[in-house]
Computed example of a mutant assay.
Amino acid sequence: MLLSSCKSSPDPAKPGNNDTGSGLTYLALGDSYTIGESVSKEDRWPMQLAAALRENGVAVQEPYFIARTGWTTKDLLDGTQNYHPDKPYDVVSLLIGVNNQYQGRSIEEYRSQFHDLLVRSIGYAGGNAEKVFVLSIPDWGVTPFGESVRKRTAKEIDNFNKVAKEECDKEKILFINITDISRTALNDVSMVASDNLHFSAKMYRLWVNETIPAIKPKI
């Protein structure tokens, strides 16, 4: 699960050439939402985003993923520590924090580690913050799995997202709010994956639709 009760150990990415073909290079950083727990590889939101960009006339390669189910901000920092690509990425996305909330990690810890991830993301983009964007943490409390803690989860997710937005503003990084979209799953089971916890390809498509007009002018 995205919120793995059994914490997933970091899996540091191996350094290598990030240019594997024609088009913009894209690095997707995150947790289970980014890696697409309970959906096919093609249905992951970064994969759908790349496909949608191509449909909009932007040549972009298949995303390179550094993400794992259960990862917190600390796990993602560990997972990227030894990753040193040969050249900067043209696009870098970051979506992280749901497991910090689920595990009861502190807001202060999240702020510090999230800021470090923003700095690292900018580095992967060759120092250009305009090539980086962040998606807000979706609200898993609207899923059947989260029913018993729905109100508390919503409040805590909002608090974490407030911090993420503040840190993005400091670094002049685009912050895209998809949390409200995720909450539409409360009344639409087709937005939830078969595990009753993660979101479906249909939901991820809505995130992509929100993202495209925001990032296209920047890339």
Results as ranks from 00 to 15, higher is better:
19 D>T: 14
32 S>D: 04
184 T>W: 04
208 V>G: 06
147 E>R: 08
43 D>A: 12
169 D>W: 05
102 Y>N: 11
72 T>C: 00
95 L>E: 13
26 Y>W: 08
203 M>L: 10
108 E>A: 15
181 I>K: 01
58 V>I: 15
94 L>A: 03
24 L>Q: 06
169 D>L: 12
107 I>K: 15
197 L>D: 00
39 V>C: 07
93 S>T: 08
82 N>W: 02
124 Y>C: 02
59 A>F: 10
146 G>F: 01
178 I>E: 05
20 T>Y: 12
65 F>N: 06
28 A>T: 08
11 D>P: 02
105 R>T: 05
87 K>N: 08
81 Q>F: 11
158 D>K: 11
81 Q>I: 10
9 S>K: 13
19 D>R: 14
3 L>R: 14
181 I>A: 11
214 A>Q: 15
6 C>N: 13
23 G>C: 09
196 N>E: 15
200 S>C: 07
70 G>K: 02
17 N>L: 12
100 N>K: 02
145 F>Y: 14
204 Y>V: 11
78 D>P: 00
152 R>P: 00
188 D>Y: 00
146 G>K: 00
205 R>S: 13
15 P>Q: 10
189 V>C: 05
98 V>M: 07
92 V>Y: 09
213 P>K: 07
217 P>S: 02
5 S>N: 12
126 G>C: 03
42 E>T: 15
169 D>R: 09
195 D>V: 10
30 G>E: 09
34 T>I: 01
187 N>P: 05
166 E>S: 14
18 N>V: 15
42 E>M: 04
212 I>R: 05
201 A>T: 01
60 V>H: 03
172 K>Q: 10
182 S>T: 02
128 N>P: 08
211 T>P: 03
125 A>Y: 00
172 K>G: 07
44 R>C: 12
123 G>N: 14
35 I>N: 14
124 Y>A: 02
173 I>N: 13
134 V>K: 02
63 P>W: 03
64 Y>V: 07
209 N>P: 02
97 G>S: 04
6 C>H: 12
86 D>N: 14
177 N>S: 08
62 E>P: 01
113 Q>E: 15
79 G>Q: 06
124 Y>D: 04
138 P>N: 04
54 R>G: 04
57 G>V: 06
175 F>Q: 06
78 D>Y: 08
73 T>A: 11
185 A>Q: 06
5 S>Q: 13
122 I>H: 09
173 I>S: 13
